[in-house]
Every structure is written in structure tokens, then in C-alpha cells.
Design a protein around this nucleic acid. Structure first.
Lengths: 234, 234
DNA sequence: TCCGTCTTGTGAGCACTGTACACACTTCTG
DNA sequence: CAGAAGTGTGTACAGTGCTCACAAGACGGA
């Protein structure tokens, strides 16, 4: 409500700017994204854009947040369509959705998971959207644990390896043995490593059939966290 | 020999330019690397640099090749210092060297393994240097296979997944079962996924002790290709 | 209703970039 | 020793991010 007219218009313009920027990002890549070009596309003076984004970097950050959210939403939806007990199905749904989203939006993926272009800082606004995919993965791991599918290896190292917030926060991982969580994080890292390597061209020359390779790799990762493909509950 | 004086000078200037560019890359990142800045640093006109590199991208490509070679050399040297039979030791030497090199040269690593900045093209000159690390890994896998340490799973999928060049070329992988090679490639991907995720800041908030996490992860990956930590030959 | 403030949009301008080009000078080659 | 080839320079163009002084409009309170 409030001063509707103005704020609503503002939100709309922000959305327009982001849409144009996203289009340019998809078409030409992050390096070629220019504030002036976006402004021209919108029939607006370049300095006008600075009323909405303080800098090019801030615009890029907004796109990063959107990318995290888009991927997170896609993954959450894919996960929700599978029966909760079908752990193998859920893992496959999630992992393959990550990959397809990445392949459908390579530049946005690169913006997020490639080398951090501006500096090292991950602005605070990005951290929450960034957790959506890992939290979905964590919930699968939690359900696997609750179904006695994962066996903890008691003697394993790992103690103080993880950030305390993982245990004390309201994550699905509360109460899980540390070595199980470590294995879960590793699966997460492997999944994205896989997608990045393929997308950034490092598999060219080694892997001829990336689909089959990903299928096989994803299955192997699932196994490593105690999830096998073909069975719901027993 | 040939026309020594000139060509030698040329090679020296090329090296100077690359050194200055590398310094600037390390200090400010790839985005901030500018031809003019490099030229200034060398007391040379900016257009002069174009006698040696046709474009900024070509200069960046040269840095990419150097980075591949530097990392490859470091890895090869680390591997060569371990007894050939000590497969666990070799894996650890190689994987930890990849990580330390990356952490010592974050921007160069990002240039190579981050999102491909210019376009999608991987210039032909980069492919050979790029193979040095994977070939070292492949030779470890080969030795593990020869030592009967790896068991092939005959029924496994995988057929036509790999690029034929891997089998017919003179790689250390000739004659290995496809599913073993697939597992090896996966290990390679996982290693770099691990390093990238840590370096690009995606583990912040989850992993409190990256060293320990990497140690544990690396060990697990080694196990997945049939290499266990503590024993040389039996 | 009117007045002051706050928001939006503009154009000009600064310092910088990559790259092309015409020119001079040096070095090599036939 | 001539001519070709290579090297270095200054200038120029088109583009960039970003700042700033200004104008016009929308808003809130009197």
C-alpha cells in the first residue's frame, strides 16, 4: 500500500531493467553486459538506470540473486513432484534439474558458480537464496537417514570440520552424525563440480556422451550417500 | 638460432608483457586486466603491446596456457617425488598440490576453471597444457589397475560414454575397462569441483575447517577409484 | 489549495577502456 | 646498399562506468 503509485512504478522499472539485463547477459555474457546498453534498450538515459542500481556490480548482484532463486525454485518444484519416500527418484529429480537449469541458462549459471567476477565479497543478500538447493539436498539426506538408509561410520575423522550453524540452526541436518553430513556436502560439491565441468567445456575430448556420463555419475554420487536408484522404502 | 637478436628480444618482451599482466591479474583480477595498464607498467605505448598480442583476449589466452602449464608442472613434480607404487601417497600428493596451487594463484585458477569469460571457444593451444594434470591422474589410475587394486564392475552401463580418443590415443588409459575410466574421470571432476567450490566461496557457512574437509574428501575420492591411503604394494 | 520536499529523469562531462591506423625508426635480408 | 620486415609512437574513434547540476513531476502536510 503506502505510496502505491510511485513504489509500484519503481518496482516495475526495476523488473524491466533486470529483464533487459538478463536478456543481454544470456545473449552476450556477463563481460559484455553494459549499463548503457540496458538503458538504450529501455529508451532511457544511462544515468537514469543509476536511480535504481547504484552500480553495474549491484545490477549483477541482483541478477545473481534472481539466478539462485530461479534455480532453487526449479529444484524445489522438481523435488516436490516425487513421493517423499522415493529417495532415489528425488535425488535424480534434483540433480538432473540442476543440470538442465544450468544448460538452459549457461551465463546465469556461470555468473553464480564461475569465478566471482567483482571481488571476493558475497553480498549478504545472496546467501539466503543460495541455500535453497543445498537445503533441498539436505532434506533428502535427512529422509534417507530417518529411513535408516545411511550408515554412519563411527570411527571416522571429522569433528569440528563443519560450521556449527549447520547443527544448531534450523536445517534439516540437525542431529545427523558429522561424517554423514560431510558425505552429504561432498555429494553437493560433486554435483555442481560435474555440472560446471561439463558446462565450462572441460569434458570436451574425454566424454563423448555427456548425458550418459551424468546419469552414471549422479547414480554413483547417490550411492555414496546411501541412496540407491530403484526402491521406495524397502 | 636463426635471426637471433630480434627474435630473442621479441621473446623477452613477450615474457615481460606476460609477467606484468600476470602480476596485474593476481593483484586485481581478470576483469581489471587492461592492455593500457600493462603497457604503462612496461614504459611502452599501449599500441605497442599489440605488436605482440593481437588482442586482450589473446593475452588472456596466453596467461591461461601458462597457468595450465604451471599447475601441470607442479602436479607432475609432486607426483614424481613419491614412489611409483605408493598409490595413496601419489593421489594425495597430486590432489593436495592442485589445491595449494589454486589457493596460491586464485585468479589464475579462476581464469582457467571459472566461467569462460570471452565466449565458448577453447583455443587449440590450450588443449595440450590442459591435459597435464588429468594425464598424471590417469597414470595413477593405470598403475592402480596394473597392481590389481581396482575392480571392474562388468555389468555396469557405460559404453560409448567416453571419447574414442581416450582409448586409441597414447594415453595411460589404453586397455582399461570403460567403467573404470569413467570412475577415474569422475574422480578428476570431483577433485576440481572441490577446489573450485572452496576457492569461489561456496563452502563458507558450511565448512569450518576446509583443510580437514579436503583431506577427508580427497581420501574418499581415492577410495572410490580403488586407492586406499596406507599401503604401498600389499 | 498551495507550498515545499522528495523522486525521477535528463544531458554534459570525466577518466578510462580496446583497438585501428598512419607514420618513423631500426634491423635484417637479398 | 637498397628494400623489406619488424618495432614503437601518437592520434583517433567508439565505447564504457559513473558523477553532477539541473528540470519536471509526484507526493504529503498546511
Amino acid at each position: 500500500m503506502a505510496q502505491t503509485a510511485r513504489t509500484r512504478a519503481r518496482a516495475a522499472v526495476i523488473e524491466e531493467i533486470k529483464a533487459a539485463a538478463r536478456a543481454q547477459l544470456a545473449a552476450e555474457g556477463a563481460a559484455a553486459l553494459s549499463v548503457r546498453h540496458v538503458a538504450r534498450q529501455l529508451g532511457m538515459s544511462s544515468s537514469g538506470v543509476y536511480r535504481y542500481f547504484a552500480s553495474r556490480d549491484e545490477l549483477l548482484t541482483a541478477l545473481i540473486i534472481d539466478a539462485y532463486n530461479a534455480m532453487g525454485a526449479a529444484v524445489e518444484e522438481a523435488d516436490s513432484k516425487i513421493g517423499r519416500d522415493d529417495l532415489g527418484g528425488r535425488w535424480w529429480a534434483v540433480s538432473s534439474t540442476v543440470r538442465s537449469w544450468a544448460m538452459a541458462h549457461p551465463h546465469e549459471y556461470g555468473l553464480v558458480f564461475g569465478s566471482p567476477v567483482p571481488g571476493y565479497d558475497a553480498p549478504q543478500d545472496t546467501v539466503l537464496p543460495a541455500t535453497r538447493v543445498p537445503i533441498t539436498l539436505a532434506s533428502i539426506l535427512r529422509d534417507a537417514w530417518d529411513a535408516d538408509r545411511v550408515e554412519a561410520v563411527p570411527g571416522t575423522q571429522a569433528s569440528g570440520v563443519l560450521d556449527p550453524s549447520l547443527k544448531h540452526g534450523a536445517t534439516p541436518l540437525q542431529g545427523l552424525p558429522e561424517d554423514v553430513v560431510v558425505r552429504g556436502i561432498l555429494a553437493w560439491v560433486e554435483l555442481f563440480g560435474l555440472v560446471s565441468f561439463e558446462l565450462f567445456g572441460h569434458l570436451v575430448g574425454s566424454v563423448a556422451d555427456p548425458d550418459a556420463f551424468f546419469r552414471s555419475a549422479s547414480e554413483r554420487i547417490a550411492t555414496s550417500i546411501g541412496i540407491t536408484r530403484r526402491e521406495p522404502g524397502g
